[in-house]
Amino acid sequence: AAESKDWFGSAVRLADADGDGRADLVATAYGENDAAGALWVLRGTASGLTTKGARTVSARQVGLRGQSNFGGTLA
Rank of each mutant, 00 (worst) to 15 (best):
G53T: 06
W7H: 12
T28S: 10
A27M: 07
W7T: 08
G21W: 02
R22T: 09
Q67W: 03
A23F: 01
V57M: 06
N69I: 05
V62E: 13
G66R: 08
Q67R: 12
S4W: 14
T28K: 01
S47Q: 15
R65F: 01
A35V: 04
F70G: 09
A36Q: 13
R65W: 02
V12Y: 02
G9L: 04
N33T: 13
E32P: 00
D16C: 06
R60Y: 14
A59S: 10
N69W: 14
G53I: 11
G53E: 10
G44Q: 08
K5S: 12
G66T: 04
D16G: 07
D16V: 05
G44W: 08
T45F: 11
A17V: 14
G37E: 11
L25Y: 02
K52Y: 10
E3C: 06
L49P: 11
A15S: 14
D20K: 06
S10C: 12
L49M: 11
T45K: 08
A54C: 09
V26I: 13
G44Y: 04
V26D: 01
A17E: 05
G71K: 02
T73L: 00
T56R: 15
T28C: 09
G66V: 07
A2I: 06
F8P: 11
A59W: 08
G63C: 03
W40I: 10
R22D: 12
G19M: 05
L42D: 01
S68M: 01
A54Y: 11
G21V: 09
A54E: 15
G31W: 07
W40T: 12
V12A: 01
D24F: 02
V57L: 15
A35P: 00
G53V: 11
F70N: 04
A23G: 10
V57S: 04
F70S: 01
V26M: 01
S68H: 07
A35R: 13
K5D: 15
A27V: 12
G21Y: 06
A54G: 13
R65E: 13
E3M: 11
D20H: 07
L25W: 02
Q61F: 08
D6W: 08
G72C: 00
A23T: 00
E32K: 07
E3P: 05
K52D: 15
A2V: 15
T51M: 14
L39W: 09
L39T: 03
S47G: 14
G44H: 03
T45R: 15
G37V: 09
G66I: 07
E32N: 11
W7Q: 07
S47E: 15
G19S: 06
A38C: 05
V12M: 00
R43C: 04
G44K: 08
N69P: 00
S47W: 09
